[in-house]
Nucleic acid binder design. Structure first.
Lengths: 115, 115
DNA sequence: GGCACCTGCTAACTTTCCTTGGCATGTGCA
DNA sequence: TGCACATGCCAAGGAAAGTTAGCAGGTGCC
């Protein structure tokens, strides 16, 4: 078994599209140091909570971060996010393998089908 | 030294944004098997030349493919593309390092500056 | 000359993403 | 009760990306 799981074509696109954003990269970088809750992270990054929440949602949808709701000592509900220890190696060969499992949204054809 | 060169934050975003597209992934996959010229590749992928050209341009801008203009035996000018043997490993730590060199278009602050 | 192949560009439309602002809810504490 | 903190959602405008269609140029061959 390798350190990198075989990515589905669609998964690969989703993960790449998710990471292809400066804000989301900063979020991952910040969470790589230590987990944080939404409001605190928003202050730390200097962006609005609404914006951060959208990015966190995408990161979570791609499986790159996870959320855990906790109660602070003073009873506040805090939603702590932490980064998932992913390892993704990108090479032409990996991409060629992933393309085999690519869903085609355009014409809805199946993998291996000829046009 | 690792197999992957240290990516700049901006470079990383550019490469990720470039690869986060089904068509461009297919192009890379096709070129990974063998190099091809524009028209032939367009037919092979079932997309228009104009569309392919835009994607090829982005891939070349990100340094993932290279173009070489050649003359076929019958004198036709053929623009052959081939994939660059890139190796990019993506982990939270790599991202954290790349973020340090991220250009901030929003407020234009310098790397290392505190807020 | 006309057809078939190759190359490139640009304008314009459509779709998607990004971002902001506002609103609603709940808690603890002075 | 009012303030400060936490959570979330939704609507709307602006910016960027994707896609198509059309035009123009070049060569070889029947």
């Amino acid at each position: 078994m390798s350190t990198a799981p075989p990515p589905t074509g669609d998964d690969l696109v989703r993960v790449l599209a998710t990471l292809a954003n400066p804000h989301r990269l900063r979020v991952v970088a910040a969470l790589a140091r230590e987990r944080a809750y939404v409001s605190g992270l928003a202050r730390q990054l200097g962006i609005s909570r609404a914006l951060l929440q959208v990015h966190l949602r995408k990161l979570a949808a791609a499986g790159l971060v996870t959320a855990r709701l906790e109660l602070s000592e003073d009873g506040k509900a805090m939603n702590y996010y932490e980064v998932e220890p992913f390892v993704l190696t990108l090479t032409p060969a990996v991409i060629a393998a992933a393309v085999e499992t690519l869903t085609v949204p355009d014409s809805g054809e199946q993998p291996g089908a000829q046009r």
